[in-house]
Write a protein that binds this DNA or RNA. Structure first.
Lengths: 211, 211
DNA sequence: TCTTCTATATACTCATCGGTATATTGATTA
DNA sequence: TAATCAATATACCGATGAGTATATAGAAGA
């Protein structure tokens, strides 16, 4: 509607939307820097002064964009959980039998675990959060767990998955796929995609030889 | 040799051995209290004052029995790693084909992860340790990993295990079995033994139905 | 142009906590 | 009995780091 069609003249005067976008961008940058440092050094061992310094800004600026330190962490974890939920939901809506869809979910799940925000989910114990934060956190993880369980049940129903204990299987799968969040280094030999494929194959195929 | 055969008269005067045993017992109590609190609230969130208070003693007493805070943690983690190594070694020396021995190791491994000290291994990231501590820690974990890999190789060689990627499989198994260290509560419905069995069965059998 | 709002910094407060200096008490040994 | 050592406490020090009070500079709006 309004002006600002020609990106030709980059005016130093910013419109309301531009300013809002700027703000969002800065918020984002703070979050990214924070999650990286939390993952690398641990939440308690990372001071907001450190985070600020890594961005060349000062601590009050972080407080300006995000509330307190726990807010920063919650935001990071929430991002990770959203990635995980999205992975589960989209893969679940695909065609194919239960096993095929589960495979797809597991693969996406593993990939998220090698992303900064996904990693953060695994590395952040309830200990770090306030009771309310921890409750929210648990509820969201539970929803993801239920998604996976539903898929396993589908697979058992349609015969594409063996009649396993659904609860324990979901825990086992999640545990295995969470692990890369703790050891995977972005500069490893295998790409995240290769790792995800390999792990999923092992979990689905099992160790015992097939007759 | 010496006196003190009749435990009849519990004298308040303690012999050298008794005093050494007392000392060891106290050290042990401090460690147990510490590991519990570390697991429940996190290392950084647990102060040595807290640990001392939980035992009805004062902080300098802890320093008297163990060096500094990192020492306490290292001792706890070392205990856990020793349990893990022992599990791997004894199970490995048993009779049976590769798969049977691997199954035995995995089961023991899972059980250790539901013990206070085993849990501590999983919950303690390298971040918490000094570079030297972390190096030692990594070396020990690597040895355990190699033990498991060797067993997988044995199984592949004797045909009891499918020809999987050894490295990735070891990671996947360890990841899955580490997980109870993070979520298992001692008061759960299933006993550690049941959980261990269920997880190992799933990992060995896989999800895909066997023909 | 005057006011107000946004973004940012400097410089501070206050609590926590690891670690230590030092005192005390009682048992062991010479 | 004097000297020593082990076990324990109280009371402190110093650093770190979360969070805040306050100032400033510039843009937006009236």
């Amino acid at each position: 509607m309004a002006p600002r069609l020609a990106s030709a003249a980059p005016s130093p005067f910013r419109s309301r939307e531009e300013r809002e976008r700027d703000r969002e961008e800065k918020r984002e940058a703070v979050l990214r820097a924070a999650v990286r440092m939390f993952n690398a050094r641990g939440f308690h061992a990372t001071s907001l002064d450190d985070v600020a310094a890594s961005l060349g800004i000062s601590k009050p600026t972080i407080y300006h964009y995000l509330g307190n330190k726990e807010q920063v962490l919650i935001e990071c974890v929430t991002r990770g959980l959203e990635l995980l939920s999205a992975a589960a939901d989209t893969a679940r809506a695909q065609p194919g039998d239960g096993l095929a869809r589960l495979r797809s979910v597991l693969r996406s799940y593993a990939l998220v675990m090698m992303d900064d925000f996904g990693r953060c989910v695994v590395r952040t114990g309830d200990e770090f959060l306030s009771p309310e934060g921890a409750a929210l956190f648990r509820a969201r993880k539970r929803a993801i767990d239920l998604s996976i369980r539903a898929l396993i049940e589908d697979g058992i129903a349609d015969g594409s998955i063996a009649p396993v204990d659904v609860r324990m299987t979901a825990f086992t799968l999640a545990g295995a796929l969470n692990w890369p969040g703790r050891w995977h280094a972005p500069d490893g030999l295998l790409s995240p995609s290769e790792i995800a494929d390999a792990m999923v194959d092992i979990l689905i195929g099992g160790l015992a030889p097939r007759a």
